[in-house]
Design a protein around this nucleic acid. Structure first.
Lengths: 376, 376
DNA sequence: CGTAGACATGACTGCGCAATCATACAGGAC
DNA sequence: GTCCTGTATGATTGCGCAGTCATGTCTACG
């Protein structure tokens, strides 16, 4: 087997022996310098670095991985959608991975693909990742596959066995609880829930938080309507959930569904928030700019991803050290204009042309509302 | 160097020789079977597959890469944000990469990080990817680094040298032109443009398309206001762009800015679309559900990513074959309720309480409008 | 019946690096 | 001076696989 000239006809890439020859040292010394190992003289180090720069040398990661048994890469399983939540997790993870000196490999699953997680995991394990991140898992197929690297589960409790499992979560339950309590404290008798798909842990977490809040306040627990995260499903759910006009407050499991739901209300002639209050979840960047600006709950994706990854890397590099439990992140409820006290009495489907939101008018926003909250 | 037991204390992973031993063949035959090479008897193939399954064997990708000089992975440089456009590209790419049997490595850059693209590229090249995808590039730092693998540039013309560069684009210019023409054909004297950051090719493309449409129709070209893709910047731009009430039609370079802009109009007492028409760009999933439902332009991210990747893989695997030029994708303008003919005469800032959109009312939607357009 | 070719298989080797081990030399302790 | 310990370096080896080449077997055909 001969060294292959590269496709473009360019000469083969330099190897560490080439660098060694030019620097007048052994190949091993080159390796030592580039890995920041001790026992290299300042002089040798300088000569090696100069030679490497001159040749444009870059280490062959495949060879490094083969020789060391480590790939310095982390695999992430995420949902293959441009939804704000999953995309935010992914970006948070990428940044965190890069900052700890690892690289990222991605495999996606799609909603409703049975075994999708298992095959995504298999693909990443085949690639020899040193650790795995499972973002917003849904409970299918996981556990069927034996995972032999440490795993970070984001946004959910661990559910399968691996040598080490660490978790980082937002405390979505607490957030959901805060959102629900916000509505109850405005005076609503109870709060309906427009849930996410219950195969998702994060959807179940939110449901549980909502339920807790209702119980703590002694409020009735109305039936739950389940959506699929999309605005379309929120729109559709409105028929089921608010057809009779007795609903005065809704907590939606994400902002998209909340926006779809609000749209349906407006089309049905109900005003938000005068007739019906709506709280979303995620604080997507446009939440402050829809009409009415959406009261929602913010998840600190970046911070949670960063902390979780720090734990994961620690487990990868020092498997024996005991870990501190991950700290839950602070709750942040962002109150805007989609929530208000309930109307004096339930208003059966209005027939007059409703004014969904009176812009510019004297319009009571609960404390803390802030329209231009996102970027400048 | 001894084979290392894995961190969890589990026994070392099986190797191809282990499979070979169990199957009663040589290691090379195992390799042949798993690579679908010819000249293996059906019997040997079966024994190898059985043995591999029994041992739970998976090939070591590092060793494969080292021996073959190919990693079967593709690197993608993308913007580190949860914006719908970049996230959609990424997901389209991931799916396409997986379908052609490659794996994906991701490196991100962030807006305004000088040299960010160069360092992302370097990181991916270090990892030995067989090909690169540069998604929605911005023009900084690229070209400073010598790239020795084929590159696919999405959504932009190629701007740097690599052994092979292929491009796949949406024809964003044509889409922008269609959006602008839609407004002109509704009777607007001219169309203002709320542009994206001009360091982005996609933003420049849209600007150029808008300009072309104006020229073709002999319309005046009003000054451009530049945003940063965010709803907040669209909101802020409204002050500059529509302060005097003479603007009747705006084409925003993405939906987020369009939504922020609309929000500002409503707060200023102007109605959309009665007083001012707005077209967005991207057709984000909630575009059909905001108030008013947004007329916008849809980019076939998935399809473009898929076609581009097919080209890229062909170049990787058969560098010598001549390529067909990538076909531009069909234009799709989605007309909803944020556009209408202009008001009889320019209306200086109204002072009455405006009704942004009369839901349920008889409200003229141009042909093709469709509220529940997204998922069921 | 001998030989060309297709088919099937395995021995051997090397990809480029890091781990192991051996070695060499310095400076301090005794 | 001898022994030790710490520092600096290199020779050698092997990670697990795929490429190369040699070899063997079987069929087809003159």
């Amino acid at each position: 087997m001969t060294r292959l000239a590269r496709p473009g006809g360019s000469p083969p890439a330099p190897r560490s022996v080439d660098v060694a020859r030019l620097a007048g040292v052994s190949q091993k010394t080159v390796s030592r310098v580039l890995n920041d190992e001790p026992y290299v003289s300042a002089d040798a180090r300088r000569r090696v670095l100069d030679a490497a720069a001159e040749l444009g040398y870059r280490r062959n990661q495949a060879a490094r991985a083969l020789a060391s048994g480590r790939t310095r890469s982390i695999g992430v399983v995420t949902l293959g959608s441009a939804l704000y939540g999953p995309a935010s997790w992914l970006m948070g993870i990428e940044e965190a991975v890069r900052k700890v000196g690892y690289t990222l490999r991605v495999a996606t699953t799609i909603e409703g693909d049975p075994g999708g997680i298992a095959s995504a995991l298999a693909s990443l394990l085949d690639q020899g990742v040193d650790g795995l991140v499972i973002s917003e898992p849904i409970d299918e197929g996981v556990g069927l596959i034996s995972v032999d690297v440490p795993v970070l589960v984001l946004g959910a409790p661990p559910t399968f066995t691996a040598p080490q499992v660490v978790t980082a979560r937002v405390g979505a339950g607490r957030l959901a609880r805060a959102a629900t309590e916000h509505l109850l404290e405005l005076g609503h008798a109870t709060v309906h829930h427009l849930a996410g798909p219950q195969r998702w842990y994060s959807a179940r977490d939110r449901l549980a938080g909502w339920r807790e809040a209702l119980r703590a306040h002694g409020a009735d627990e109305p039936p739950v309507v389940e959506g699929d995260w999309s605005a379309a499903s929120g729109y559709a759910a409105a028929r089921e959930l608010a057809g009779d006009g007795t609903v005065t407050a809704v907590f939606a499991a994400n902002d998209d569904m909340a926006i779809g739901f609000i749209r349906a209300q407006l089309e049905a002639g109900r005003r938000v928030p005068e007739d019906i209050s709506v709280v979303g979840f995620d604080d997507i960047p446009i939440a402050a700019y829809v009409t009415p600006p959406l009261t929602t709950v913010r998840q600190p994706f970046d911070e949670v991803a960063r902390q979780g990854l720090a734990l994961l890397v620690q487990v990868i590099e020092k498997p024996d050290v005991e870990l501190p439990p991950a700290a839950d992140q602070p709750v942040e409820l962002v109150v805007r204009a989609s929530t208000a006290p309930p109307p004096p009495r339930p208003i059966p489907g209005r027939d007059r042309r409703a004014i969904p939101h009176a812009p510019g008018g004297p319009h009571d926003q609960p404390a803390g509302s802030e329209v231009p909250s996102t970027q400048p």
